[in-house]
Design a protein around this nucleic acid. Structure first.
Lengths: 153, 153
DNA sequence: CTTATTTGGTTTCGTTTTGCAACCATTCTG
DNA sequence: CAGAATGGTTGCAAAACGAAACCAAATAAG
């Protein structure tokens, strides 16, 4: 009766979701991208229960998304920082944010801009090798040998 | 003691996760992008419990990510299809897939290629208006008035 | 040195969600 | 009409979640 395991479904999306697919993990990662590093700050900014936060941070560290760094300063002893793997979720988080903005309206007081130009970001899109935008209808799903992927049903 | 609500946190990412942020929803969407439309096929291909599948499909329909279409054929009475909003999650799913491939290796027998050229897709990236790639370090978080977003801590 | 405070956790307990299996109703097929 | 397929629903046990209480180490205050 354990939660279904997603890491052995032979699907990249599933194993990604196995690492960050719960309600909180991506929010923690997003918050970390905003600059939050300390336990109490995650707790206050997200309003997450302490035991859940603890559990999620441990899992993120386990999966190499974040690291726990010992900083010997006052009572603030640790910092949780994104790894390269964690920072690489920027695309996912941004795509998710923009999707929500497009379809649910911008309920967010916060906006992302290019640090250099100060301009808002371009929409995240899927592109082919030449840089042309692709929708889901413009792609094919193939197996290792390039044959079309057969779907049950 | 209900699950924390994410739709009123005043954060786009949170409200996106409120719609598709559980373990199964994005997998269902991904499967739909692969061509799956019927209840039984979702069940077989994902190995999801029937009551959970039912619940998730209802939620996805409620949130406008999918629609339930009545097709009067044999016992197969309904089809669940992606809406435009659902198809627009292609970026998110693809970014997630590529992230997993980069960091966990390709455990997937399936690959996405451009239908026209047959070539694999380009990596999904965040870009500025000029098309230059941006990492999380290249962006700033600002409020409505363009002032830097203040972080607790 | 002693006490209070901050930080980061763990424990406890009640509620909700999940997973599984069994059951049910409707629509075809034979 | 009997049987099968589809799309559910129900009931139950295990697990996860959420809130609050409790705990331990390291400072800081006095």
């Amino acid at each position: 009766m354990t939660r279904k395991r997603f890491d052995e479904m032979g699907c990249c999306v599933a194993s990604a979701l196995n690492e960050v697919g719960d309600w909180w993990s991506l929010l923690i990662v997003k918050q970390a991208m905003l600059g939050t590093r300390r336990y109490v700050d995650f707790q206050n900014s997200l309003g997450i229960a302490k035991n859940i936060l603890c559990n999620r941070l441990s899992r993120l560290v386990e999966n190499g998304v974040m690291v726990r760094v010992d900083v010997g300063e006052h009572g603030k002893r640790y910092e949780y920082r994104l790894t390269d793997k964690g920072r690489d979720l920027f695309t996912v988080v941004t795509a998710l944010r923009q999707w929500s903005e497009r379809w649910n309206g911008a309920q967010d007081s916060m906006q992302l801009v290019d640090r250099q130009t100060g301009e808002p970001l371009a929409p995240v899109i899927v592109q082919n090798q030449q840089g042309l935008p692709l929708t889901v209808r413009d792609v094919r799903f193939v197996d290792e040998e390039g044959k079309p992927f057969e779907e049950a049903g």
